[in-house]
Write a protein that binds this DNA or RNA. Structure first.
Length: 403
RNA sequence: GGGUAGGUAGCGAAGCGGUUAAACGCAUCAGACUGUAAAUCUGACGGCUUAUGCCUUCGGAGGUUCGAAUCCUUCCCUACCCA
C-alpha cells in the first residue's frame, strides 16, 4: 500500500503529541520508508499488571492507530516478563510482582480492550518473555554494562524515592534496561509512550545503539489528568474513566470533572475534529453558556467513542432522569425477594447494595435509603411487601425488588 | 560488619500502660445545597440481622500485668550514617 507524503504523515503524527525526539530522525526514517516502500516498526509496551485501560491510555493507543492508518506496522509488546519486575513508575512503591500466568491472562484483557481503538491491520502482538526469558546471566551483565548507575538514577522516580528514603530494589533499576531490550528485540523504529515514559524510551535509544542498531525515535503523548483534576489518571487513584466502564459511568464520570479540564478531555479523550474543538473553545469562553452543558456533550462524545451513539443518548437520558429530575431510571437491576418479610438491612446487604451490614445501617441512618421514594431512617425497619417496589440506596444505586 | 531511627486502619501520620475501635489529614460514602457524580457545608468511615452486647485490629510469635498499640524476649522487614 502506498504511503502518504512525509509531510502529510508528520502532520498526523504530530497531532496530540508532546515531543518527537528527534524529529529530523523521524523525518529521515519516514523518507526511507517511503523510498523503500517499507513500513516503520512502531512499538508500544503494555504493562499487563494493570490491564484496566482508561481514556488516558486511549491517547497513546490512538497515536498507535494513526501509525496503523498511515500503513506502518505496530507491535504491541505485552510486558509479561517485565511485569515480574513491576514498573517502578507511577506509584512510588515497589510493586508486587506477578506470575507469568497472571500476566498472560491480563495481557489478553489488555488486548481486548485496546482493540476498541486499534485496528487489526498492521498489528502484531509479542510477549517479551519470548526474549527476556531466554537471557542468561551473562547476557544480563552485558546489557547492564551498557548503562551507568548515575544514568539510571537520573530517572525522576528513582531520584524522588532516594530523596524520600523509600526503598528501591535493585531489580527495579533493570526495568528501563529490559524495556530497552524489547526495542532491540524487535528493532523498533519508533516507540510511543506517555510523557512519563520519556526516560525509558530514551534508554531504548541508547541501548539499541549499543547493540549496533539504529536508534528508535520516540513519540510522547500527553497524560490526561483524572476526574479529580489533580493526579494523572490511574485506576488505583480512583479517578479513571475506564474502557470497561458502563456508558452510564463514563457519562457520569465525565460530568464530575472540574470545568478547567473540559477542553483537554475533548481534545485528548473524545478526540474531536479540529473544527469541533474550535467551536467548543468558543463556547467555553462564552459566559452565557453553562459549562455543565459542555460536559453533557463531553459525556455524550466519550460514550459514543467507546460504545455507540445509541448508548450515548441513553446514558445522557439516564443521567438527566436520575440527577436532574431525581427520578428512577428506566432500566434498573431486579431482585427477587422470596421471604414474606425481611429486615431492610438484610435486604440491602444481600442485594449487594452495601458490602457489610454496618454499612447498610450507616446508610439508613444517614438518610440514604428510600423505598418507592419514601425515606427510611429506622435501621430496624422490616419490609412486608405486598407489591414490587423500588429500593434506592445512596445517590445512584437502584434496585427493583420483585415480590 | 558497627551504629541510629522506624514498621499503627485504603494511604499519610499521632498515640508510647487504663475512659483507645485508636487523634488528625487525604481518599471514600451519605445528607443538604447546586450547573453535575463539580465546589461548599454537615455527618459517617473494623466486623457482627442492631446490641448501653459480642468479636477482630496497631509487622509476626511468645511473655509481664487486673489491664498492652504502648513494657520485656525473639523473629521478620525498611531507611539512614560509618566501614
Amino acid at each position: 500500500m502506498p504511503f502518504r507524503s512525509v509531510k502529510e504523515q508528520l502532520d498526523v503524527i504530530k497531532r496530540n503529541t508532546v515531543e518527537i525526539i528527534p524529529e529530523e530522525e523521524l523525518e529521515k526514517k519516514l523518507e526511507k520508508s517511503l523510498k523503500e516502500n517499507k513500513p516503520l516498526i512502531v512499538k508500544l509496551g503494555c504493562d499487563p499488571s494493570r490491564p484496566d485501560l482508561h481514556i488516558g491510555h486511549g491517547v497513546v493507543l490512538q497515536k498507535l492507530r494513526d501509525f496503523q492508518d498511515l500503513g506502518h506496522k505496530v507491535i504491541l509488546i505485552i510486558g509479561d516478563f517485565t511485569a515480574m519486575i513491576g514498573d517502578p513508575s507511577g506509584k512510588n512503591k515497589t510493586r508486587p510482582p506477578l506470575t507469568i500466568e497472571e500476566t498472560k491472562v491480563n495481557g489478553k484483557t489488555y488486548f481486548d480492550q485496546a482493540s476498541k481503538i486499534l485496528s487489526e491491520k498492521n498489528l502484531e502482538i509479542r510477549y517479551n518473555s519470548e526474549w527476556l526469558g531466554n537471557m542468561t546471566f551473562s547476557d544480563v551483565i552485558k546489557l547492564a554494562s551498557k548503562y551507568t548507575v548515575a544514568q539510571i538514577l537520573e530517572r525522576d522516580d528513582f531520584e524522588k524515592r532516594m530523596e524520600s528514603k523509600t526503598p528501591i530494589s535493585l531489580h527495579e533499576l533493570l526495568y528501563p534496561l529490559s524495556q530497552a531490550m524489547d526495542s532491540v528485540a524487535i528493532s523498533s523504529d519508533v516507540e510511543i509512550g506517555g510523557t512519563d515514559q520519556k526516560f525509558n524510551l530514551l534508554v531504548g535509544r541508547a541501548i539499541q545503539e549499543a547493540y549496533g542498531q539504529e536508534s528508535q525515535c520516540i513519540v510522547t503523548c500527553e497524560l490526561l489528568e483524572g476526574t479529580d483534576g489533580v493526579e494523572k489518571m490511574s485506576k488505583s487513584l480512583n479517578n479513571a474513566i475506564c474502557f470497561t466502564d458502563s456508558p452510564k459511568d463514563i457519562f457520569g464520570k465525565s460530568m464530575s470533572i472540574p470545568d478547567a479540564l473540559i477542553y483537554k478531555y475533548f481534545t485528548l479523550g473524545a478526540m474531536l475534529s479540529f473544527e469541533e474543538l474550535t467551536e467548543i473553545k468558543k463556547q467555553l469562553e462564552d459566559p452565557s453558556i453553562n459549562p455543565r452543558n459542555l460536559k453533557v456533550r463531553l459525556g455524550y462524545e466519550l460514550v459514543k467513542k467507546y460504545y455507540d451513539e445509541e448508548s450515548a443518548n441513553y446514558a445522557q437520558h439516564e443521567f438527566e432522569t436520575i440527577f436532574v429530575k431525581k427520578e428512577v431510571p428506566d432500566d434498573i437491576p431486579e431482585f427477587k425477594l422470596d421471604a414474606k418479610e425481611v429486615k431492610l438491612v438484610t435486604l440491602i446487604k444481600e442485594a449487594n447494595m452495601a458490602s457489610t451490614s454496618s454499612e447498610a445501617i450507616r446508610l439508613i441512618k444517614q438518610g440514604g435509603v428510600t423505598i418507592d421514594g419514601r425515606k427510611i431512617t429506622d435501621d430496624k425497619f422490616v419490609i412486608k411487601p405486598e407489591k414490587d417496589f423500588v429500593l434506592k440506596v445512596g445517590k445512584r444505586k437502584f434496585l427493583k425488588v420483585l415480590v
